[in-house]
Amino acid sequence: MGSDVRLTQSEQELAESLPHGIRLGAAWSWRLLLIGALIAVAIFLVVQLRLIVIPVLVAVLLSALLVPLVSFLVKHKWPRGLSIAVAMLGMLAVVSGLLVLVITQIARNSSALSERAVESFESIKEALLNSPLQLTETQINGYLQQLLDAIQQDSQIFISGALSFGSSLGHFLAGMLITLFATLFMLIDGKGIWGWVVRIFPRRARAAVDGAGKVGWATLGNFVKVQILVASIDAVGIGLGAALLQVPLAIPIAVLVFLGSFIPIVGAVATGAVAVAIALVYNGWPIALAMLGVVLLVQQIEGHVLQPLIMGTAVKVHPLAVVLVVAAGSMLAGIPGALFAVPVAAVLNVMVHYISSGVWKHTPAPPLPPQGSPLWSTVPQARPGYRTDAAVAPSPSSP
């Protein structure tokens, strides 16, 4: 016993002999390492289960988009089942219509584009021959042959990609089904699902989790609505500019810009570059420069007007943080990571701020579910002492 006391005292003396900064840094270090390990494990699990996680995340975004429409129809005396059906079928009709329109436009202009691409290649080749670079036709053909050789050396990648097309198509179709079913169930019984998620946590933590989910869901809904507005303005501006300049595939360009705008900054730059490239191939340098001016003008309006005034009020994330988060998401999970990076960061930001503020300490925790209740059942609304405004956060089924 005495040796244990002496050992404890010696350890205490050793700790006190260290500078305060060293002790503070060590205390922070092991905690940060533990948090980093937990985050790394979570990211690893998400990557391994991406075929399920990505469709579910898409379903959450779609639910945040469709909830206002369902709530509007319910408030106007529509049956809830009919409201959900109209919202789902309307979404499918819009997406299908856009796909049919894009495919029709591409099929109609494919032959003209291929002929124009050959003409543009010949003109570029002629310009290189007459340029100060003093390139000869043999050198240009040699460079092209090197490019073809590089493609042939990497042909195994294309062959494996072609062989895996069937499995990739199957994964895509399975992901679509998961997305549709998850969206449907979130609209039907979102309150029950959220109540079950809250009850997973210890009772003392439920008020914090419930309130954090509440503010997170509100932020996600604002993000989706505002992002659709911003993407629509970008698509209309660039698509209208392409149509006025008589650039082919103006409608597919507008749809591409609309989809790309959901990836902040990076998506707008990439889709704008595609529009300029099509104008360069089909219409030549003057129209391509004019198309570049249209893209830059629309991007300036978005960056200096729409993002600060509209997006800034909905998603309180600094533009530098947006760039870094999108870059990190694309490195970890490619296009899906870049797509979900900003909404995930925005939701986590408000949830962490809510929990750290301590407001949830004055909110009662949701009660335990009754014995034998089904897993996805909703929390009974008439239980004594139950507060619906504090126990369950707004969910896709909340009117």
Rank of each mutant, 00 (worst) to 15 (best):
L7E: 12
Q9S: 11
Q9F: 08
Q12Y: 07
E13A: 11
A15P: 02
A15D: 01
S17K: 13
P19L: 03
H20Y: 00
S29D: 15
A37C: 13
V47E: 13
Q48Y: 14
L49R: 13
R50E: 12
V53M: 08
A59D: 01
V60W: 03
L69N: 01
S71I: 01
K75N: 14
I84A: 06
M88W: 02
G90F: 03
G97S: 02
L99A: 10
V100A: 10
L101S: 11
I103Q: 01
Q105E: 10
R108A: 15
S110L: 12
S110V: 05
S111K: 06
A112T: 05
L113D: 01
S114D: 09
R116C: 01
S120W: 11
N130E: 10
N130K: 15
N130I: 05
E137S: 15
T138Y: 06
I140D: 04
I140G: 08
G142Y: 15
A150E: 08
F158H: 07
I159C: 00
S167F: 14
F172A: 15
L173G: 04
L180N: 00
F181H: 05
G190M: 11
G195F: 09
V198L: 09
I200A: 05
P202V: 00
R204M: 08
A205F: 15
R206E: 03
V209K: 01
D210H: 00
G213L: 15
G216N: 03
W217G: 09
W217S: 09
L220Y: 04
F223E: 06
V230K: 11
I233E: 11
I233T: 14
I233P: 12
G239L: 11
G241I: 10
I251C: 03
A254M: 08
V255L: 08
V255G: 06
L256H: 13
F258D: 10
F258W: 10
I265W: 01
I265H: 13
G267M: 03
V269W: 14
A270M: 15
A270F: 15
T271K: 05
A273P: 03
A275F: 06
V276A: 09
A279N: 03
A279C: 12
V281W: 07
W285D: 07
L292R: 07
L296M: 09
L297A: 14
Q299D: 11
G303L: 04
L306K: 07
M311G: 11
A314G: 01
K316H: 15
H318G: 00
L324H: 13
A327T: 08
S330M: 10
L332E: 02
A333C: 08
I335P: 04
A338E: 01
A341V: 07
V342P: 01
A345F: 12
A346V: 07
A346D: 05
Y354Q: 03
V359T: 10
A365C: 12
P366H: 08
P366A: 15
S373L: 15
Q381C: 04
Y386W: 05
D389Q: 11
S395T: 11
